[in-house]
Design a protein around this nucleic acid. Structure first.
Lengths: 128, 128
DNA sequence: AGTAAGAGGTTACAGGTGTAAACTATAAAT
DNA sequence: ATTTATAGTTTACACCTGTAACCTCTTACT
C-alpha cells in the first residue's frame, strides 16, 4: 500500500477527503457538487483528478447508471503513511525525536501536555 | 521563509543535507565528492540541483576561485516547517492530535514514553 | 423540435522534477 | 604539446501536477 499512498498529490487529497467523509461510495454528481462548492475547480478538473486517482489504484470507479467512486485507501492509512514518512525523512525514523522536537518548539501547551500525560499513563498500564 | 522551504524537493534535500552537515560554506568539489559517494548522481545532476536551490533562494553561491555554496535555510527551519506543514495538512493544525495518533499507533514504546514524561515535567515547570 | 444540464471521453498546456549529456575553459600531469 | 580532471554554462527530455477546454451522448424541460 505504501507505494500507492505516496503518490497522492495535494489536489488529489482534496478529492480523497470528500470520499473519506462519505462512508462507502459516492456518485460523481455528489462529488462534483461538494467540490464545486468548496473550490473553484471546474467539472473537468474534478474528473481528471478522479481519473488519476483511479489510475494510481487508490480509488475504485464503479459503473452503474453513472460512475460511483470509492476510496481504496482509508484516511487512517493515509495519515499513518504520511506521518511515518515525515518521521523517516526528517527525524531519522524516531517518533520520540519528533515529539521532543514539538516540545522544544512549544507546539504543545501545558494543557496539551496534561492531556498527553494521562494518555501516557493508560499506555503504560496496557502492555506490561 | 515559509515559501522558500516549501519548494525544496526530495532530491534537493539530499543536497541540503550535505550543506547542513558542513557548517558554513562548501566548495563545489567537496559537494561533488560527498554526493557521488552516497548516490549515483552525475556531476551535472548535482550542478542542476544546486542551481535550482540557488534560484529558489535557499542556497547562496559564492564565487571564489571556484563556487562555494552556503545554505540560507537551516535544517532546524526546514524541520520545523515540514513538521508544521504535516500538522496543518493532516492533523487539523493540532500537534497534540499528532502525538495522540503516534501513541495510538504504537509508534512510541514504553521507554520512549518514559523519556518524554520527564521532558514534560521540565516543560511544565518552565513557564508558570 | 430545440435546448439545457449532466455525464463520459480525449486532449491540452505551462510549470515543476529527476536525471543528465554536450559544449567550453582552465589547470595540472605526462 | 597532449591528455586528463575539474569547473562553468546551456540544453534536453520524459514524466508529474494543476487546471482545464472540447466534443459527444442522453435525458429532461420548454
Amino acid at each position: 500500500m505504501s507505494k500507492l499512498v505516496s503518490k497522492i498529490t495535494d489536489s488529489e487529497v482534496e478529492v480523497m477527503r470528500v470520499l473519506w467523509e462519505a462512508e462507502g461510495e459516492l456518485p460523481i454528481g455528489d462529488i462534483r457538487r461538494i467540490l464545486e462548492k468548496n473550490s473553484n475547480w471546474k467539472r473537468s478538473t474534478i474528473k481528471t483528478l478522479l481519473r488519476r486517482l483511479c489510475k494510481k489504484g487508490v480509488v475504485l470507479a464503479i459503473k452503474k447508471e453513472v460512475f460511483y467512486y470509492k476510496p481504496l485507501v482509508s484516511e487512517r492509512e493515509y495519515k499513518e503513511y504520511t506521518t511515518q514518512s515525515l518521521i523517516d525523512r526528517v527525524y531519522s525514523g524516531s517518533a520520540k525525536n519528533l515529539v521532543a522536537s514539538l516540545v522544544g518548539n512549544k507546539k504543545l501547551d501545558n494543557h496539551d501536555i496534561e492531556e498527553l500525560r494521562s494518555l501516557f499513563k493508560v499506555e503504560d498500564n496496557r502492555d506490561e
